[in-house]
């Protein structure tokens, strides 16, 4: 079951403090990286919710993020909605589509679930790629940023936008954490461990899976809205299965089923990508080697490794303390 251990809370606090400090001191390029990390962090929080805790490994989360981005842009540009209602609509649409995908895929498990979500994701990608409403392979430009001028906040400023992006990561984390502490979240973890038993106890399994997938889809839709507002340009590439694959890599790199780990994974992935790509164009190969090393280490990602090391140190320390007490 999901729980906030002191290590997790400390890591969250350090990441929040670090990103806020970085948002204050960074230059334009650094702020762009920070926004990129935030978008990826929201997406991997969404993915970890269903894959890490519910065992529903999805390859359509890139497409769900794309649904959010496209729905937001079309609602704002074509339907003339202001950014806030457009965001609400885009997130609701992402959730509704995710619910439908979750309901259909709920009967499959393992590799079949992955393939079914991949098929849905590619259907979405192909549709957007072909559709003139969505700009085809040219994509769409001109997505507005949220207008918070009434609060004296100007999101056209990169630094302010970075703070806004960090706030949305915190919102996504809060939604995911509250979901995991709810009845649905408890059942989601139970489904990961024993679907048959939960059904025998009276749970409507497909509905629980679909609802969890919908919440995850809503969070992915939020990432899409932020992505559209960040670059103010979106293309079908956002919905490609490689985006979903990359998100899965980040979740595994950070620590599957920890919620905190994937955020750490997003920071590491984006920083590594930028640092290594400045040295060699073959940065994917190096990130791949790092991922293989992480997987082969049998630790649950970087955060899982840290958790295991600290747990091991605590275990070896305890007898010493007991002995000390006994001696005293």
């Amino acid at each position: 079951m999901f729980r906030h251990t002191p290590l997790r809370l400390t890591t969250l606090g350090l990441m929040a403090a670090g990103s806020l400090i970085y948002a204050i001191i960074a230059g334009f390029f650094g702020l762009e990286i920070l926004a990129e990390i935030a978008i990826l962090a929201i997406l991997v929080i969404a993915l970890d919710l269903v894959a890490g805790f519910g065992g529903m490994v999805s390859l359509c989360h890139g497409a769900l993020m794309g649904v959010g981005a496209y729905a937001f842009t079309v609602a704002a540009n074509e339907a003339g909605m202001t950014a806030l209602p457009a965001m609400v609509l885009a997130i609701a649409l992402s959730a509704a589509i995710a619910f439908a995908i979750g309901a259909v895929c709920a009967r499959s498990i393992g590799i079949y679930f992955i393939m079914a979500t991949l098929a849905f994701g590619q259907m979405g990608y192909s549709f957007v790629f072909q559709s003139s409403l969505f700009g085809g392979d040219d994509g769409l430009s001109g997505a507005p940023r949220l207008d918070l001028s009434a609060l004296g906040i100007d999101l056209t400023d990169s630094r302010t936008f970075a703070f806004y992006a960090i706030a949305l990561v915190a919102l996504a984390y809060l939604v995911a954490a509250l979901t995991l502490r709810s009845g649905l979240g408890r059942s989601l973890v139970g489904l990961h461990h024993n679907e048959k038993r939960l059904r025998a106890l009276g749970l409507t399994v497909w509905r629980a899976k679909a609802t969890a997938f919908a919440i995850s889809g809503a969070i992915a839709g939020l990432a899409g809205c932020l992505a559209a507002q960040h670059t103010q340009y979106i293309s079908p590439g956002l919905m490609s299965w490689t985006v979903s694959g990359e998100a899965l890599v980040v979740v595994i790199l950070g620590g599957l089923g920890t919620l905190v780990g994937p955020i750490l994974g997003a920071i590491l992935f984006v920083v590594l990508k930028h640092e290594i790509s400045s040295i060699t164009p073959y940065w994917h190969a190096i990130v791949g080697l790092i991922l293989i090393a992480v997987v082969m280490s049998r630790a649950n990602g970087v955060f899982g490794f840290i958790e295991a090391r600290i747990a091991a140190r605590t275990r070896t320390r305890k007898p010493t303390l007991k002995e000390a007490d006994a001696d005293a």
Binding site: M1, G183, L184, R186, S187, L201, G202, L203, R207, A208
Partner: peptide, 23 residues
């Protein structure tokens, strides 16, 4: 505790609630 709690929560119809921790 979680095994028994999950069973009781589902039986009480709280296996899909969103607003509180049934455990």
């Amino acid at each position: 505790r979680e095994n028994l709690g999950l069973s009781a929560a589902v039986a009480l119809g709280r296996g899909q609630g969103l607003w509180s921790d049934p455990l």
